[in-house]
């Protein structure tokens, strides 16, 4: 157990070190969602969005839940990228030739991605707060938001790692990533409530796990515990199934790649 922890700590520290050496990349990953989506998109659509439809006092306050979950989505889907590069340049082989638990590499990545994502979600909520959006459920609500984000993030990171282990080249990986991420956002309640969508889009969006996550996070920010709790209960169930499927697929891809 002590050895296991030693491995995981060392591998997680490696991800932290890498990130800290890529200052620009760190800055842009951190700033991009709040700058682009929250500040630009949120303010731009302030008057174009119909308050009757969004049921929120401002478009930014409506959008905050969407941006939080989008950040989880993007970080999760990109979570396997570093492992992809490790696989391609042979570093993964070097790691695997040492007497470590096979799962340490994967676990270190989960820990790292979840930590970075949580920090980012806190920054986004902080920026939203500057624009007058205060989560009505308070600190416990924020903790619940982080918990939902992590549950969703685990499954996404697993998908990303599974892809990293399965693809032939990193070109494939980034094509699939690009293909997956925007439709996931548009076919969810991130930007527009389901009720206001064209019928067929609303129909598809129901099957998007992202919609479930947003529908639980949004009342935590805007309405209160009474409205939020049923959604929170629901999203936990959905995410348990989602994570189980993703982790199963991820474990299979990992075993096939590593043996």
């Amino acid at each position: 157990m002590k050895e296991y922890w030693q491995e995981i700590r060392a591998l997680t520290m490696r991800w932290v070190r890498r990130l800290s050496r890529e200052k620009f990349s760190m800055l842009f990953t951190l700033v991009q969602p709040m700058l682009f989506w929250l500040i630009f998109f949120g303010n731009l659509f302030q008057r174009a969005a119909d308050m009757q439809v969004t049921q929120a006092s401002s478009y930014i306050s409506f959008l905050t839940a969407g941006v939080v979950v989008m950040t989880v989505l993007n970080n999760g889907l990109a979570g396997g990228v570093d492992l992809l590069f490790d696989k391609e340049n042979g570093f993964l082989e070097r790691l695997m030739s040492t007497p470590i638990h096979r799962s340490s590499v994967i676990l270190s990545r989960f820990i790292f991605v979840m930590t970075i994502t949580s920090l980012q979600v806190l920054v986004i909520l902080g920026v939203a707060w500057l624009f007058g959006v205060q989560p009505v459920t308070g600190l416990l609500g924020v903790a619940t938001i982080l918990f939902i984000g992590m549950m969703f993030g685990v499954g996404l990171t697993a998908i990303s790692m599974a892809m990293a282990f399965s693809v032939k080249s990193h070109g494939d990986f980034f094509s699939v990533l690009g293909f997956l991420s925007l439709p996931m956002i548009f076919l969810s309640s991130a930007l527009v409530p389901l009720a206001a969508m064209p019928g067929w889009m609303g129909f598809l969006a129901q099957f998007n796990p992202m919609t479930w996550a947003i529908d639980a996070v949004r009342p935590l920010i805007l309405q209160g515990w009474t409205e939020a709790l049923p959604h929170v209960g629901m999203v936990i169930m959905v995410m348990v199934v989602f994570d189980a499927l993703c982790l199963y697929g991820g474990a299979r891809a990992f075993r096939r790649a590593i043996g």
Partner: peptide, 19 residues
């Protein structure tokens, strides 16, 4: 090629020491 370009030489060895 199997080198992490962002880590220093010493950090490579420290990482492996833990592994």
């Amino acid at each position: 090629r199997a080198i992490d370009r962002f880590l220093t030489g010493r950090e490579h060895l420290e990482l492996l020491a833990d592994l």
